[in-house]
Each structure stands twice: as structure tokens, then as C-alpha cells.
């Protein structure tokens, strides 16, 4: 059984308008997505801004009110607040935020910030709690003198590591990492990502890794889901997505990865333009008449794509994949 099973998750926000301020329409931030997160793996959720990845992450951690669908954890639907309370759900599922500064309360000392989940779920004695906080700081590579300082006294990378320490404090099974490194510069990104990987090895944590940076996702994730306009357009292993992308949206995302090889500049440019041309000419083939993605179709045991069945088969055979 998977650690977390997300089934047909929908998060819609109402749009009110008119004299009576009635609900006239809705923004479909997340519109029916289904995927499973296995224990110990890193699951990548990729898409452009506004595609609903963060909303999905927040729903999984219980911060977002879900319109319909279910998220199963230990066989319980945790979209209901009552079930979350009964399971001590947030002891097992924690979150790392994108903005390291605003996610740490500026008026609290580091000790209180890291100890917050411990105080709610573990009820340790004062000394044990302090010891645990010191150990956590040590694990993420910070000195003990950070204990009584405030968040603004740290650099971005250090703050993000404090966020990681808070997330691991209760030894959770799943951590939602919502673009954990996109606000950091490259050298610090690598540092924080390696810490996350180290912690994953040592504590056997699963990550739901939300990002728009495909280079980072390739480094971190075994399985990847691509999101577009609130729906999943492609699911597969790292191999499937990077070497055999089927959906035009995935191809566009991959084409957008910057290439540093200047000698091949013209060739890269040509291939990017080719992808963009296909996108412009064949949009109707890849999206339905409303411009939304189709339901997912399985093309191999690990690989699914949101296309009509015949087109998916045809593309898959062009890519030379083994049929399911």
C-alpha cells in the first residue's frame, strides 16, 4: 500500500460577483488529480506557476480546504479535519516552505520555532526538548549558539535549513517541500538539497517535492508528475519523463531548461523553436476543446499521459517505448 493515496482531488475557489455577491464561477486550482506517494521515495510535482502544485501540496498537509476527492493516509481520509486530529496527522506529515523568512515567526527564537511541533505532539521534558533541538540543529549543520537567536539573524540558506530542522523534528514519514530552494542562489541550493537527501537516507522520509526547476527535480526525484492548469498531464519515472516525454507540455518544459553549451547554441535554439511550433500548430490535439488536459492514459506500467488513447499509443510507439 502506498504511503499517501490522492484520489480525484479537486480544489476550487468560488468567484463572487454581481449585486447579490453570489457564486458565479470558480477558479479550478486543482481539478481532479490522482497519484500515490510511496514510502521512502521522492515524488516530484512539476509545473509552471499557477498550475496548482502548491495548492496540491497544501491540501496534502491539510492547510487547504478540499472541494472534493480524497487523500488517504493509513486508510483514513485526511481531508476531514477530524481524521487529521485523531491520527496526529501532522506529526507524520510536515512541510518545508518556499519563503524561508516569512515561514519562520520573526518574533520567536530558533529554539521555540524548532520546538513548536515537539511541544504539540511529543510533550518532552524541558531538557529533553532542548537536547532534541540541539541535535536537530547539529543535523542540519548549524551551531548551538543559534538557539536563542531570531530568524532575521541568519542567511537564506541557514534559514531554510532551520525550516528543514523544524519539519524533521517529529520524525515524520512525509515532508511536503514546496519549492524549498527556489528562493536561494545556486550554491546554497545544492547545500540545502544535499541536506534534504542526507536526512532522507538517515530517517527514511518521503518527499513530495514541488518545483518548477527541472534540473533540481532530476537530481532529487524518482517519480515525477507534470501539472498543467490544475490537471496532471504526464506521470512517469525520471527515465520516462526526461528521455521519453510524450505530452507537448512536458516537451516544452524540458526545452526550457537552459543549456550552457555555447557551441551548440544554434542547434538548441532550433530544437526549442521546433517544440514551440508543434505546440502552436497542434494544440487541439493535446488539449480538449476547452483547452484543458485529457484524462490520463497508461502507455507503460510506469508511464501515463493525458491524451486520447489513439494519439497516446501512436506517440508512444514513435518514441519506441514498450507497450503496456
Amino acid at each position: 500500500m502506498s504511503l499517501v493515496e490522492i484520489k480525484d482531488l479537486k480544489v476550487h475557489y468560488p468567484i463572487r460577483s454581481g449585486f447579490w455577491n453570489r457564486v458565479t464561477d470558480s477558479v479550478k486550482a486543482v481539478d481532479g488529480i490522482t497519484f500515490n506517494i510511496e514510502a521512502g521515495e521522492t515524488y516530484g510535482l512539476v509545473g509552471e506557476s499557477g498550475s496548482g502544485k502548491s495548492t496540491t501540496g497544501k491540501s496534502v498537509v491539510g492547510l487547504e480546504k478540499v472541494t472534493s476527492g480524497s487523500i488517504l493516509y493509513n486508510g483514513k481520509d485526511i481531508t476531514k479535519a477530524e481524521n487529521r486530529r485523531k491520527l496526529d496527522y501532522n506529526r507524520d506529515v510536515q512541510m518545508i516552505f518556499q519563503d524561508s523568512l516569512s515561514s519562520l515567526n520573526p518574533r520567536k527564537r530558533i529554539e521555540d520555532i524548532i520546538a513548536e511541533p515537539l511541544r504539540n505532539f511529543e510533550h518532552l521534558s524541558k531538557d529533553d526538548e532542548k537536547l532534541r533541538v540541539l541535535q536537530l540543529l547539529n543535523i542540519v549543520g548549524l551551531d548551538a549558539d543559534a538557539l536563542y537567536k531570531y530568524p532575521h539573524q541568519f542567511s537564506g540558506g541557514q534559514r531554510q535549513r532551520i525550516g528543514v530542522a523544524r519539519a524533521v523534528a517529529t520524525n515524520p514519514k512525509l515532508i511536503i517541500a514546496d519549492e524549498p530552494v527556489s528562493a536561494l542562489d545556486l550554491s546554497v541550493q545544492a547545500q540545502v538539497l544535499n541536506f534534504m537527501k542526507k536526512i532522507q537516507r538517515e530517517f527514511g522520509i518521503s518527499y513530495l517535492f514541488i518545483s518548477h526547476d527541472l534540473g533540481v527535480v532530476r537530481h532529487m526525484c524518482n517519480n515525477i508528475a507534470i501539472m498543467n492548469r490544475g490537471r496532471l498531464v504526464e506521470i512517469g519515472t525520471r527515465e520516462d519523463i526526461y528521455n521519453h516525454p510524450l505530452h507537448i507540455y512536458t516537451k516544452r518544459l524540458l526545452a526550457a531548461i537552459p543549456e550552457t553549451n555555447v557551441n551548440q547554441r544554434a542547434a538548441h535554439r532550433a530544437s526549442r523553436l521546433a517544440v514551440e511550433k508543434i505546440y502552436e500548430d497542434q494544440q487541439s490535439k493535446y488539449y480538449d476543446e476547452d483547452g484543458m488536459a485529457y484524462p490520463l492514459v497508461q502507455v507503460s506500467p510506469t508511464h501515463s499521459v493525458a491524451l486520447p488513447e489513439n494519439i497516446a499509443k501512436q506517440l508512444a510507439s514513435q518514441e519506441g517505448e514498450v507497450q503496456a
Binding site: 497544501k58 498537509v61 491539510g62 492547510l63 496526529d88 501532522n90 506529526r91 510536515q94 512541510m95 516552505f97 518556499q98 519563503d99 516569512s102 515561514s103 519562520l104 515567526n105 520573526p106 513548536e116 511541533p117 504539540n120 505532539f121 525550516g163 523544524r166
Partner: peptide, 13 residues
């Protein structure tokens, strides 16, 4: 609306 409130909620406060 700030993230530290969301973080506190996610920590079970």
C-alpha cells in the same frame, strides 16, 4: 496570510 501561520497550523498548534 504569512507562511509562519501556515507553518504553525502544520505543526499542529
Amino acid at each position: 496570510q504569512k507562511d509562519y501561520v501556515a507553518a504553525s497550523k502544520a505543526s499542529g498548534t
